[in-house]
Design a protein around this nucleic acid. Structure first.
Length: 561
DNA sequence: CCCATGACGAG
DNA sequence: AGCTCGTCATGGGT
């Protein structure tokens, strides 16, 4: 039956343990999973993304799952957790008492802590040995592990605030597994030449590398008296270097030096040095060698790991710089032969989300426009850019600058939205946890460790307030984005449309060239469906907030916008 | 060796 | 505006 829950655990040797409802479970070949998926489309239950990855690696792409880890992060907030933490929370056990495997010695061997074939120890916690992988040693144990997953799922059900969010966040873990396995198309030659443009050609020996380093340092140091030695990698030394030429700065951040370009001829080469250093250390040849794999047909892809939600507000995160690649590298992200990218980003997502989650009808009315800042500006009787800064400032907790005055206009014209933000701010200031529209707990950890001055305490509270009001918008926006993304993942299967990058409000989809237009149209339909499924409706059942995207079909990421 | 901090890229 | 994230560097501490 579609949507039926089936517990699933796959050992590292590929043994598949299935726990279907009302059965004692069975051990099967992975092809059986593919058959069940095709015929019944169940909702698979598993501990975390690692199972999703095993399936994707076997070329099985399930439609639905209940990911215990993703759901745990929704219910309880915070970042990634292992089975032992999930289990402990569901049984209201103190996380600090979770046992860890003691080093193997005579003493630890002497302690008898019950039946090692039973995953739950006498203290009620999962045994560390099981958590660390011993569940995978035998088919019998794998069955127990799948069974425990179903037990945990049943315990999560009553704690869930929105089942729809559980489903989309779980599906997002599947999407993450896929993005990890398939990678981001990356044209090696183009990437290498971009890097070389910043840091010089790829060195073949350590001497060459050192010479290039010295050459780049000299471009900056030449503006100082001969014999000067400063380590440009040390902010402290850069500060004293600048003091030497008569520039006094509290820090040496780029935006501050930008303003001092004309103060001394050393500033410009210093900024250039910094840009090159960023490429060299973070996005250089080493990065390419470490993270880009070339397949048998000679095409290269960048592989990182993805998390469907990590950190505070539940945005996706990614490693190896997938979320902060310098724009200069985007020409290297190229569709493979016979393919195109469909790229789309959500327009003005945060104010639209605010209108929706706050239920502000007037702001919702403004969202009907392609540019919703225009009607807001009219209401406030200010310039459009002022209105924009004011709205963003309200969501981020701006306290100074131009937006501050227009803020009073916002309070007057959009009291519901502003009241929503103020409530989040107050709650966070008081260290009270928040919950996003989709039901994610945003923890306000009271980290006020030592005694601090009255002044510091106030500024920390204000920072918490800003964090809280932002988390309610950013968090809900992340949920909405993921709903959109996983709908496209599901609906795009028949077009062979593969999502290869998620960037907070932007999707990059790799698709056979002939399917590009269909995929682009589908992506827009998925946006409307996401709005319909996710966003709050008014009393009449109408969806009052309009969401828009900018969609294009391109060959290289750099062609966008 | 861990940890805090500065710096910087992206949204 | 000020918010999130990951990554790499130095420099302090153990």
């Amino acid at each position: 039956m579609a949507g039926e829950l089936i517990g699933l655990a796959i050992t590292d040797k590929g043994v598949v343990a299935l726990l279907e409802p009302g059965t004692t479970g069975r051990v099967v070949d992975i092809r059986e999973v593919a058959r069940i998926e095709a015929e019944d489309s169940p909702r698979w239950v598993w501990w975390n993304k690692s199972t999703a990855r095993q399936l994707v690696e076997a070329n099985i792409r399930p439609g639905r799952c209940w990911d215990l880890s993703a759901t745990h992060r929704l219910i309880f907030g915070g970042g990634n957790s292992g089975p032992e933490q999930i289990w402990a929370r569901l049984h209201e056990l103190d996380a600090t008492t979770i046992p860890t495997r003691a080093p193997v010695n005579l003493f630890s061997l002497a302690v008898d802590s019950g039946d090692p074939d039973e995953p739950v120890g006498p203290d009620g916690h999962l045994r560390p040995e099981w958590v660390e992988g011993e569940w995978s040693n035998t088919a019998h144990r794998a069955l127990r592990w799948a069974e425990l997953a179903v037990v945990a799922q049943q315990l999560q059900v009553p704690l869930v605030h929105s089942e729809a969010t559980v489903f989309s966040e779980s599906a997002c873990e599947l999407l993450c597994a896929e993005m990890e396995v398939v990678g981001l198309p990356f044209e090696l030659g183009v990437g290498e030449s971009i890097v070389a443009g910043f840091v010089g050609p790829r060195p073949t020996t350590a001497e060459e590398a050192n010479a290039e380093l010295a050459r780049r340092d000299a471009e900056v140091i030449q503006h100082l008296p001969t014999g000067s030695t400063f380590d440009l990698r040390s902010p402290d030394q850069v500060k004293s270097l600048l003091r030497r030429v008569g520039i006094e700065v509290p820090d040496t951040r780029a935006w501050r030096l930008e303003a001092l370009r004309d103060a001394h001829p050393i500033v410009e080469p210093l900024l250039a040095w910094r840009r090159a250093e960023r490429i060299l250390t973070t996005f250089g040849f080493q990065w390419i060698d470490d993270n880009i794999a070339t397949n048998l047909s000679g095409h290269s892809r960048l592989h990182g790991s993805w998390s469907g939600s990590d950190g505070a507000a539940g945005r996706m995160t990614a490693t190896v710089g997938l979320h902060n690649m310098p724009a200069e590298l985007r020409p290297a992200i190229a569709a493979e032969p016979g393919h195109v990218f469909v790229r789309a980003d959500l327009g003005q997502i945060e104010p639209r989300i605010l209108a929706a989650v706050a239920g502000d009808p007037k702001l919702a009315a403004a969202s009907q426009e392609d540019d919703m800042y225009a009607p807001v500006a009219t209401q406030l009787r200010v310039e459009r850019d002022i209105a924009k800064v004011a709205v963003l400032g309200a969501m981020y907790g701006q306290t100074t600058g131009k937006g501050a005055e227009a803020l009073r206009g916002l309070e007057r014209e959009y009291p519901i939205a502003m009241g929503f933000l103020a409530a989040a701010d107050r709650s966070a200031q008081g260290s009270h946890d928040l919950r996003t529209y989709g039901g994610r707990l945003v923890r306000m950890g009271s980290t006020n460790s030592n005694e601090v001055s009255e002044r510091d305490a106030r500024s920390q509270a204000a920072a918490r307030g800003r964090y809280g009001r932002n988390a309610m918008v950013q968090g809900a926006a992340a949920e909405f984005f993921k709903t959109w993304a996983v709908l496209m993942r599901a609906r795009g299967r028949t077009l062979n449309a593969q999502i290869v990058l998620c960037l907070h409000d932007e999707l990059l989809i790799h698709v056979p060239e002939q399917n590009g237009p269909d995929a682009a149209a589908l992506l827009d339909r998925c946006l409307q469906e996401a709005a319909h499924r996710w966003a709050p409706r008014d009393q009449a059942g109408n969806q009052p907030v309009r969401f828009v995207s900018d969609t294009s079909i391109i060959s290289r990421w750099s062609e966008a916008k």
